[in-house]
């Protein structure tokens, strides 16, 4: 197995450093990131709600103001989503980049993992913001459905945490467990030279990677 105590501790220390960096960068990145998300969300909302024009306006102090215009009935209204509810959606913006950057593999692999992780994160944020605004713009005018809206918001926090664990495990699994699943590989691995590159694509020498525990 390519997993050992030293590697986990190294992962933990690196995570703390990258987490601090991501946390400090978060307020600077968030406005630009939100613009990108909204740019993708608005066409999706237009497709889902053809009878409404929905426009999202951000306010650093309040959160979001979502303007809804229904031309058929000539009704114009808006609703707000505060920063506390928003942090449930964007919580992963600090966690996911930090855990991918801290994964103990070569720099090239690390950047590759980071790009894949952040791309997936962007897709999930676009989908979750679309779902969030769609549900609110559809059910908010109906008082009986307010409870449903609250339940959906409550799902975002654990949902985001589960998503972070799943994408991290699925993308980094082979770096942690490169030899799981087949026994014949163990015989093959013994033929690799100690100073040769490891067969698990980590970019490290065999003696520093899978060979360290043999």
């Amino acid at each position: 197995m390519n997993i050992n105590q030293r590697k986990i501790l190294f992962f933990g220390i690196q995570f703390c450093l990258f987490f601090l960096v991501c946390l400090l960068l978060y307020p600077k990145i968030l406005p630009g990131y939100q613009e990108i998300v909204f740019y993708m969300v608005e066409p999706l909302l237009q497709y889902l709600t053809p009878n409404k024009y929905i426009h999202i306006v951000t306010d650093a102090k309040v959160g979001w103001r979502i303007d809804v215009f229904e031309p058929e009935i000539g009704k114009k209204w808006f609703f707000g989503i505060d920063n506390q509810q928003l942090s449930m959606i964007y919580m992963n913006l600090v966690l996911v980049p930090a855990i991918f950057l801290a994964t103990p593999v070569g720099i090239k692999k690390r950047l590759h993992l980071f790009c894949r992780g952040v791309s997936l994160l962007l897709i999930v944020h676009v989908l979750s913001v679309t779902a969030f605004v769609y549900v609110w713009s559809t059910f908010y005018p109906i008082p009986e459905k307010h409870q449903l809206c609250q339940h959906i918001i409550a799902l975002f926090s654990p949902g985001g945490q589960v998503f972070a664990v799943v994408i991290w495990c699925s993308l980094t699994w082979k770096h942690w467990f490169p030899k799981s699943g087949i026994s014949i590989h163990a015989k093959e691995v013994n033929k690799i030279g100690r100073n040769a590159l490891c067969s698990c694509d980590s970019g490290l020498k065999y003696k520093r990677c899978c060979g360290s525990t043999v």
Partner: peptide, 8 residues
Amino acid sequence: HQLAWQSL
């Protein structure tokens, strides 16, 4: 409360 500790 909302960001740092949840992620940690």
